[in-house]
Design a protein around this nucleic acid. Structure first.
Length: 586
RNA sequence: GCCCCGGUAGCUCAGCCGGAUAGAGCAAUCGCCUCCUAAGCGAUAGGUCGCAGGUUCGAAUCCUGCCCGGGGCACCA
């Protein structure tokens, strides 16, 4: 609908070019928008005000010319000039009826578009380290990323959803060591658990499982394990040095093979848990990309070699540093530590390079806001390798703060004392969780109130929208119960009977849906879709209360049911994109 | 100190690629179920858009400075 009006406007401006307007008059800032105030019509454009200077006439005068050259269209009932030079379009009611007809024909595809046709987009999100269960912060990234990906797919982009599994590197070694120590505890050995180890109870579970499968195979006396290690932090030592030494000792005592068995057992258990969790949350991936494979395929080494060849790496204090400052970063960054181990940053450059080599036009990384300092260095890496860094969008998700009514829930990842995503889902349900997570802009801190999310009251926006959907279903059920029969053909033929204000309002909302999806896709902003669905549900509830749908006049009744049906399609489609269910009854 | 996000109604937030009289939900007050689900609807009230400059025909929106809140500045991930 909007596109059709834009065509009219463009056509008019083209006939004016070289006549009233100079040939090269720029038109990029011209916009055509829905009006806020119905007295300004349905759509308005600022074209005359922006082009007035080029035309060397005042905006209202130019507006006259633009209107005079607008092609004839059945969509438009009237065009006015208002205020400082706005051109206001008043649409014909028939235009909205036509949109409704199209919406019904499209069903749940209504609103989908092909604006992203030909674009391959890779969306990487969550990518939490497989060192423990997902917590509520990851949940927001999951809900946001999944919704963004869904919306991009609905607007015609070829979307590839990917989870980057950090299954290589030091954190994995720490994980394996943590599990092993708990295993030894399970064998009745007394161990001072390292300050830097993973302390969560899930580590004990994995250790117990290991004992059940492998028995005493990995048993070593505690003295042998701990003897001669540098002091840990509680004893005044350095916790990093302590854990590194502990890892080395573990490898030595167990041998590479057994160490790897423990590491893999832990990795597989945790990864399986993460997959299940996300799957239950309605979040699925096309690919789980393994960092370990990236390392083992030599891609990291090759990437580093490319940087070395360009002379962008130097040695200092025993480490290898990438000249990130040459490419816009604040500091140079270590790519190989003094112990010879490549940093995660080195893998990350290789990973992004790999993504681009796979042929995506656009990469979207969704990260927690606490990683924002990481953005310049990844961009620096891409720029150094002469890759088009503009093709990378990093979308940051701010923290979610949990509340139970008035009480703020404190969390600390270090101590393993955090609320998991699974606990949250079980408490408030998947629908409320998905909706609450994306209800606010990703750039806003999110206050997530568990009490509110659980409440079955009018304070809870999720139920408000779902209820609108269930109500429509209930109307159709009611019709059937009364022995009536909905005839869509008759309804479509009678759309002109829909002349009540509430009906027009609802038709306007339905006609907006394609624009809402387009905007949500362009801005990576699922919250705009959430707000729209609330508005749409509101228009339905208002209409429902003002008029009876199941009237004796069958033509009018079926026309109204057509309107309800289209509304239901949009509600279902929109909720689906947000990963929220659309129940038939509540 | 430097970087990122935020500061809009009592509360939580939209609006921010400049547009017309700044919106919504909740909370508050007053109404609406013999009628398709009251998890609903209607009405009323509520604002120096953090502060100060600047750009513009026009600024909540863009620029600069400052104030307040949150986060980040590792040979951690």
């Amino acid at each position: 609908m909007k596109a059709a009006l834009e065509e009219l406007l463009t056509a008019s401006l083209q006939t004016l070019a070289g006549d009233v307007l100079p040939d090269g008059a720029t038109t990029e800032d011209i916009n055509l928008e829905r009006t806020r105030d119905p007295r300004h019509g349905d759509f308005a454009t600022n074209a005359a005000m922006l082009l007035a200077r080029h035309a060397r006439m005042n905006p209202r005068q130019l507006a006259e010319h633009i209107i005079a050259r607008l092609p004839e269209s059945s969509l438009v009932a009237r065009v006015d000039i208002a205020g400082p030079g706005f051109i206001n379009f008043f649409l014909a009611p028939a235009a909205y009826r036509e949109q409704l007809t199209r919406a019904l024909a499209a069903g749940e595809q209504w609103g989908h578009s092909d604006i992203g046709a030909g674009q391959r987009v890779q969306v990487e999100f969550v990518s939490a380290n497989p060192t423990g269960p997902l917590h509520v912060g990851h949940g927001r990234g999951a809900a946001y990323g999944a919704s963004v990906a869904n919306i991009l797919a609905a607007t015609g982009h070829a979307v590839h959803r990917e989870y980057y599994v950090n299954d290589a590197g030091r954190q994995m070694d720490i994980l394996a060591a943590s599990v092993w120590l708990r295993y030894l505890e399970h064998c009745e050995e007394l161990i001072d658990f390292p300050a830097n180890g993973y302390r969560g109870s899930y580590i004990r579970d994995i250790a117990e499982q290991l004992k059940a499968t492998h028995g005493e195979r990995f048993y070593r006396p505690a003295d042998e394990v701990m003897q001669g290690l540098p002091d840990d932090e509680p004893r005044g030592g350095d916790k990093e040095r302590h854990i590194d030494a502990l890892i080395a000792r573990s490898r030595e005592l167990l041998g590479e093979e057994d160490f790897r068995i423990i590491l893999d057992a832990a990795l597989e258990a945790i990864l399986a848990d993460i997959r299940d969790d996300l799957e239950e949350f309605g979040v699925s991936y096309d690919e789980w990309f393994s960092e370990r494979q990236l390392v083992e395929s030599d891609a990291v080494a090759q990437t580093l070699a490319r940087l070395e060849d360009k002379g962008l790496v130097y040695e200092q204090d025993g480490a290898r540093w990438f000249r990130a400052t040459d490419f816009g970063d604040d500091k140079d960054r270590v790519v190989v530590r003094d112990n010879g181990v490549a940093t995660y940053f080195a893998s990350d450059i290789a990973y992004h390079l790999n993504k681009l080599e796979r042929g995506y036009q656009r990469l979207i990384d969704i990260w927690g806001a606490d990683h924002h300092g990481y953005v310049p260095r990844v961009r620096a890496g891409l720029r150094a390798l002469e890759m088009p860094e503009a093709s990378l969008d990093v979308l940051l998700v701010q923290f979610a703060i949990l509340w139970r009514g008035e009480e703020k829930i404190q969390m600390s990842t270090r101590s393993g004392d955090f609320v998991t995503l699974r606990e949250l889902r079980h408490e408030v349900g998947n629908d409320a969780a998905r909706f609450f997570y994306v209800m606010r802009s990703n750039e806003q801190h999110l206050d997530f109130d568990l009490e509110l999310a659980k409440s079955r009251t009018n304070e809870n926006p999720v139920y408000y929208i779902q209820y609108a959907h269930a109500r429509i279903q209930s109307v159709f059920d009611q019709l059937k119960a009364r022995g009536g029969d909905f005839d869509p053909e008759r309804g479509l033929a009678s759309l002109s009977r829909l002349d009540e204000d509430h009906e027009m309002d609802l038709m306007v909302e339905i006609s907006r849906y394609p624009e809402v999806l387009e905007q949500a896709a362009r801005n990576h902003a699922p919250h705009t879709l959430a707000h729209y669905l609330r508005d749409l549900a509101g228009a339905l509830h208002t209409y429902y209360n003002a008029h009876t749908f199941l009237v004796d006049d069958e033509a009018l009744r079926d026309a109204r049911l057509c309107l309800c049906l289209a509304t239901r399609h949009v509600l279902r489609s929109g909720l689906d994109l947000l990963g929220v269910s659309a129940p038939d009854d509540m």
